[in-house]
Amino acid sequence: GKMTGIVKWFNADKGFGFITPDDGSKDVFVHFSAIQNDGYKSSDEGQKVSFTIESGAKGPAAGNVTSL
């Protein structure tokens, strides 16, 4: 299901970062391709987002990331 969290950091040059879930669980990796914004796929530190957890090649990753 959908979770909410805060972007801990995001490196636009490398195209990835981490989200800290609101439920206190482990930080989740986020790749720019998962960000659902139109246009520039980046996110700012401290941005509140909703997301799903997908199982990626390197473990859990955020999917369907949407700014709230």
Rank of each mutant, 00 (worst) to 15 (best):
K26I: 08
V49Y: 04
S25K: 05
F16G: 00
G17I: 05
V7N: 03
H31S: 07
V28T: 02
K58F: 14
V7A: 00
A62K: 00
D27K: 02
D38Q: 11
D23E: 03
E54P: 00
S42H: 12
W9M: 02
G1T: 13
L68Q: 07
E45S: 15
L68S: 07
L68F: 08
Y40W: 15
K2W: 12
D44H: 15
S33W: 07
D23H: 05
F10E: 04
A57V: 13
T52K: 04
Q36G: 09
V28R: 00
L68Y: 08
A34Q: 11
T52Y: 09
K14N: 05
A62L: 03
F29Y: 08
D38I: 13
G56Y: 09
I35M: 13
I53S: 04
K48Q: 08
D38C: 14
N11G: 04
I19A: 01
G63F: 14
N64D: 07
K8F: 06
F10G: 01
T20F: 04
I53F: 06
K14E: 05
K8L: 07
Q47W: 15
F29H: 03
V7E: 03
D27R: 03
V65R: 00
G56T: 15
K14R: 10
K8D: 04
D23Q: 04
Y40L: 13
F29C: 08
E45G: 13
K8E: 03
G46M: 09
I35V: 07
G56R: 07
G46E: 06
T4C: 12
D13T: 13
D44F: 15
D44K: 15
D22S: 08
H31N: 03
A12M: 11
F51G: 02
N64H: 09
Y40M: 12
W9N: 01
T66R: 08
A62Q: 01
G15Y: 04
V30N: 00
S33C: 10
G24S: 04
G59A: 03
S67T: 12
G5Y: 02
F18G: 00
G15R: 04
G1E: 12
Q36W: 11
F10C: 07
S50N: 05
S33E: 05
S42L: 14
Q36Y: 10
E45I: 15
N37Y: 13
F16M: 03
S33K: 07
K8N: 04
D27H: 05
A34K: 09
W9K: 01
K8G: 04
A12K: 15
G39N: 10
S55G: 08
N37L: 12
K41W: 15
F32R: 10
D44E: 15
F51N: 01
F16S: 00
V7F: 09
P60H: 08
F10D: 03
T4L: 07
P21Q: 02
G63Q: 14
N11A: 06
I53D: 02
V28D: 01
N11Y: 04
I53G: 03
